[in-house]
């Protein structure tokens, strides 16, 4: 009797962990590497969101109050993370700045998702002329370089939070429309959709009752990635002075303000930069995690 029987090909054989044929299975299970990125990301995003919402009630300094000490180093005095060149509290400005980032990240993404999914599902379900028209519109949106598009948009309209959200939402629509369309086409071929039509469901009912939830699963994982992209886009615009007009604090604006003093007072850039980086990173990690989960679920 051979001790080692590796039939899986090659010389790689199974370690003889099973002693007798009837013993309980003690063949080693392969371990999955634990991923701490996603939960930590969720904690960070939770803090940012809660901070942004409750900023007015938190024991923070007024973010726009000009102080005496200019460009104070972190840890000095009453300013935990120091002050900027105008002596404004950086922690407070970062927390209030999160409002803009989150408003844009969540608001613009949600808007883009609603419009994009509606268009994408209509295109994927009805095909034909509806599909051609919507696809043309989507391709039209995608043909613009994003930053150019935003600069043009801001130049044409007054820079305000609403306009910023609208502009960024417009940028996010193609992503959602495309993934919704592709998934609608795939699911529409499944027999449960035919079954629903056979029961007498109207197209609207088929789309909302049968297809929407199935299409939303892959859309959700994309949503986090789009949020990250839109937060970056908002940051870039604010950095260029095309975002929310001052003195409203925003991370991009803080980076731009601190740029001139970067050599003497690196914290002016480092701290808002860190907020920015952690937030975008957290969105992406969560997005990867969600994509993995949804992939597993749909393969069941």
């Amino acid at each position: 009797m051979t001790d080692v029987v590796g039939h899986t090909g090659s010389a790689l054989s199974v370690p003889p962990t099973v002693k007798s044929a009837d013993a309980a299975p003690v063949v080693k299970r392969r371990r999955r590497r634990r991923d701490y990125g996603a939960p930590l990301g969720a904690v960070w995003l939770g803090l940012v969101v809660v901070g942004a919402i409750t900023a007015d009630w938190l024991p923070l300094a007024d973010p726009n109050e000009i102080g005496n000490v200019f460009s104070a180093t972190p840890g000095l005095g009453d300013h935990l993370l120091g002050t900027d060149i105008l002596g404004r509290d950086i922690l407070s400005r970062c927390v209030y700045g999160a409002r803009i980032s989150m408003a844009v990240g969540l608001g613009a993404t949600a808007l883009a998702m609603v419009v994009g999914v509606a268009f994408g599902m209509a295109a994927g379900y009805f095909r034909g002329a509806v599909d051609s028209t919507i696809s043309l519109f989507v391709n039209f949106l995608m043909a613009f370089p994003p930053l150019m598009f935003l600069i043009a948009l801001v130049a044409a309209m007054r820079p305000s939070l609403t306009n910023l959200v609208l502009g960024l939402a417009l940028l996010g629509i193609p992503n959602f429309a495309r993934i919704a369309r592709a998934n609608t086409i795939a699911f529409a071929e499944r027999e449960f959709v035919t079954a629903s039509k056979a029961l007498g469901a109207s197209p609207f009912r088929v789309l909302t009752r049968e297809l929407l939830a199935n299409v939303m699963l892959p859309v959700m994982s994309l949503m986090l990635v789009v949020m990250a992209a839109l937060v970056v886009a908002e940051g870039s615009l604010s950095f260029l002075g095309l975002g929310v007009p001052p003195p409203t604090p925003s991370w991009g604006g803080m980076l731009a303000d601190g740029r001139s003093q970067m050599n003497e007072h690196p914290h002016l850039v480092m701290i808002p930069g860190l907020f920015f980086f952690l937030t975008v990173f957290a969105f992406n990690r969560l997005g990867d995690w969600a994509r993995g989960r949804i992939g597993r679920e749909s393969s069941l």
């Binding site: 499944r190 027999e191 449960f192 035919t194």
Partner: peptide, 13 residues
Amino acid sequence: LQMIFQDPISSLN
């Protein structure tokens, strides 16, 4: 007029 399909998995949402 009703229909029963071939694939038991695919025909249910």
